[in-house]
Amino acid sequence: MNTSVLPPPKPKRWKSFWIKTVSILLFSVLIGWSILGIAGGLNIERVFSMTTIERAQTVIPQLLQLNGEQFGRIVGLIIETLAIAFTGCLMATVFSVPLGFLTAKNMMGNTWLGQVVHSFFKVWLNATRTFPEILLALIFVASIGPSPFAGVLAIAIGSTGMLGKLFGETIETVDMAVVEAMQANGANKVQILFYAILPQVIPEFLSYAIYRFEIDVRASTILGVIGAGGIGTLIVISAANRNWGEVGLIVLCIIIVVTVIDYFSAFIRRKLV
């Protein structure tokens, strides 16, 4: 009697071999196309020329030599940046709660109308998430003029896409047994909302909103590049004036502020969930 146990037979590799070969080929074609396409516009001779080296020799030491002449203005603009992110994020959070309910499958029911509403809002939120905030800001700057308000609107709309989707997904995971228990006891819709659904979702809603605030702070630092308020305006101006010391200081301030906010946000979110 043969007691030795044979290893299971090797799975047939042909299919995976073909998938691998084809994907590697496609991938190399993609990279080759990119390199060929970009090579013309790259200006390698200009990028790696003496002027670049000379420029780097003047720019890089100046970047590290922080220029604090306008420190007060930088702090003011950073506060404005944070205010843009906060206002936009709060607006988005408030808007996203009803949107979340409208995109949640278990809230809209199985009726024909519910399905249509659910899919409509889902598609709408996906569409909003496609645009970078700064593109939205550009359109708002064109329509209402360069002001922090344009930035707030762009942040609010950009955040609504993500928050609405996440809120909807959170509501879909709600324990429906609690809802049924309340229904069996004769609670009306408003009572079910306040005593069965909201207590289950509020911690996660807050956690997502704070996480989105983190992203919004990063996004609002660059809104000023196109004139929608915040620190971005000053960075473009000082870079155009070749005031590299100030650029260095602004970048340092952004790094510090974003790091501190990330840290606090992670701390609060750990406590919430």
């Binding site: 200006n43 990028v47 420029r55 630092t221 590049v225 971005g232 070749r242 970048v251 790094i255």
Partner: peptide
Amino acid sequence: LNILRTIPELILAVLFVGLFGIGVFSGI
């Protein structure tokens, strides 16, 4: 790596445009 992630790409682009001049290279 955390510090690298805090600088938005558009601000990096402003810096590199200042260093290497306008063009695709700075963007990449």
